[in-house]
């Protein structure tokens, strides 16, 4: 009697493997996020008065500069997708019932997309010089209002 040797069980996969790209995304975005978040923490918490300098005028000053606009939007998108995909991994590991797992993963991505949209809208439509109340607040926060509004 001859021994029947089954053909190997792992088929050669063809086409698009989403999990592989997810795996690569975590590493690629991770490296970029180290630069972006360390820079963010240094600029906001280490320089000058750190946390105590952060207010409406501080953010208005930063977002008058395209450099920080691009920095913040890139960080927002990369970090939210990185975090959401990480949470998806945990949900896949720990949610035991399929419908709970599916619901949570859906919730995660809905939250992710919503916050990306909200964040980008907040930054791109931001106008600290648009009304008198904002101008008063800039002055109260100690900003050079004329220079700042000329930049915006």
């Amino acid at each position: 009697m001859s021994v029947i040797i089954e053909s190997p069980r792992s088929r050669k996969r063809s086409g698009f493997n989403l999990e592989k790209y997810g795996w690569m995304y975590m590493r690629l975005s991770g490296v970029l996020l180290i630069i972006l978040i360390f820079g963010h923490l240094f600029a906001n918490l280490m320089v000058g008065d750190g946390i105590h300098a952060i207010n409406f005028a501080f953010v208005a000053g930063k977002w008058a500069d395209p450099f920080w606009q691009v920095w913040d939007v890139t960080m927002l998108v990369l970090a939210l997708i990185h975090g959401t995909n990480g949470m998806r991994t945990l949900v896949n590991d720990y949610a035991e019932r399929e419908w709970i797992r599916r619901t949570l993963v859906w919730l995660l991505w809905i939250t992710c997309v919503t916050l990306i949209v909200v964040g980008i809208l907040a930054l791109t439509t931001f106008d600290p010089c648009g009304d008198q109340a904002s101008l008063d607040l800039l002055a109260k926060d100690g900003a050079n209002v004329a220079a700042l509004c000329a930049a915006h």
């Binding site: 207010n55 953010v59 909200v118 964040g119 907040a122 109340a133």
Partner: peptide
């Protein structure tokens, strides 16, 4: 999640942000 929301608040309520 919290940080994106608190930062986005600056767009609709500057005094609230402070």
């Amino acid at each position: 999640l919290v940080h994106v929301l608190d930062t986005a608040l600056i767009r609709i309520d500057p005094a609230g942000y402070d």
